[in-house]
């Protein structure tokens, strides 16, 4: 682990000491097992303690952690026979959105997800997960295709937001997002969304209207980034921490508000400390969500989705 967040400093210190001790006992043959296991216990306790009460801002940092598993990690661990499909059939191929057919636990599914990239080259290629209109139009196309083939849809959400660029505006970023929301609402097949990292505003909800919306424990989902909100409402971007509190963007808050249907617990210390077990946990939650929807016909699925969002106003009154 070479990338610690600021609030993880105490953990980093002990883990640093641990590393030294391990080297020492390897080099000198002195047995320091007791001390090592004592420190390991301490790290575990500290991790558990820290991660059980992360503040909304800390969660924001965890959700954006570079080592956090991304869309393609989920696809390669959960989906077999993945066959990527490219292009919006109008202008181009947007690699910020990955999509394609594959199998999830034996069943064919359409997977559509936002990919941030995991190294510099990848991040540039995937535009840091910020889609242009082509990405949303590709997503709409794949949603309609899934409906045509009667295949359930899985969306994986992880984006700072839709890309704010000249070309994006010229080619109708808003229209592309609006049509994508419309497609999510419309298709007569099961749609399950999983917010794996950052659910950034309109760029996220474009793929986030589903029969079941699940969210990883330390993911965030918000109408605006805490920084953006702070700079507009507090006129000071440095107050992002305060804005993060006010926005109620954590999985727990969103579950209480009725915006998401379930929370997938992450391993101690967050998804970035154990990608494999994180993704496996997500897999079980997704399996359950799809199983719940399996008996419903197309009209019922579409109706359920619509009702769910219509009722959100009523839920807020409670």
């Amino acid at each position: 682990m070479n990338s610690y967040l600021d609030f993880e400093k105490p953990i980093a210190e002990i883990e640093g000491k641990l590393q030294e001790l391990r080297h020492l006992s390897d080099d000198s043959g002195v047995n320091m097992l007791d001390e090592v296991s004592r420190l390991e216990g301490k790290v575990d306790r500290l991790l558990k303690q820290t991660y059980s009460r992360l503040t909304p801002w800390q969660k924001t940092l965890v959700a954006r952690h570079q080592l956090r598993p991304h869309c393609s990690d989920y696809i390669s661990r959960l989906i077999t026979d993945f066959l990527p499909l490219a292009g919006d059939r109008a202008f181009g191929e947007d690699r910020a959105v990955i999509g394609g057919l594959g199998r999830f636990q034996g069943h064919t599914v359409m997977v559509i997800g936002q990919e941030k990239g995991s190294d510099t080259e990848g991040r540039v290629a995937h535009n840091f997960g910020m889609a242009n209109p082509e990405g949303y139009r590709k997503a709409s196309r794949l949603l309609r295709l899934a409906e045509r083939f009667q295949v359930p849809v899985l969306t994986l959400i992880d984006t700072p937001g839709a890309y704010p660029g000249i070309g994006a505006e010229e080619r109708g970023q808003s229209e592309a997002i609006a049509r994508c929301i419309e497609a999510c609402l419309d298709v007569r097949v099961p749609v399950v969304a999983l917010i794996i990292g950052e659910g950034g505003s309109g760029g996220a909800i474009a793929l986030g209207v589903a029969n079941r919306v699940l969210m990883m424990e330390h993911a965030i989902y918000s109408v605006i980034s805490p920084e953006g909100c702070a700079s507009i409402l507090w006129r000071d971007a440095a107050l992002a921490e305060t804005a993060a509190e006010a926005l109620r963007l954590t999985a727990e808050d969103l579950h209480a508000l009725g915006v998401i249907d379930g929370i997938v617990p992450e391993p101690v210390g967050g998804a970035h400390r154990d990608a494999a077990s994180t993704i496996d946990r997500a897999g079980s939650a997704l399996e359950e969500a799809f199983a719940d929807l399996r008996g419903l016909d197309g009209a019922a699925l579409r109706g359920q989705r619509r009702e769910k969002y219509l009722e959100l106003g009523a839920v807020a009154e409670g």
């Binding site: 109620r248 963007l249 508000l257 219509l310």
Partner: peptide, 19 residues
């Protein structure tokens, strides 16, 4: 912004109105 993610949900709800 003052209604957080609930305002974001209006994007879905108003799309239902159009539908």
């Amino acid at each position: 912004m003052q209604e957080g993610v609930l305002s974001l949900m209006q994007m879905a709800r108003t799309t239902i109105a159009v539908d």
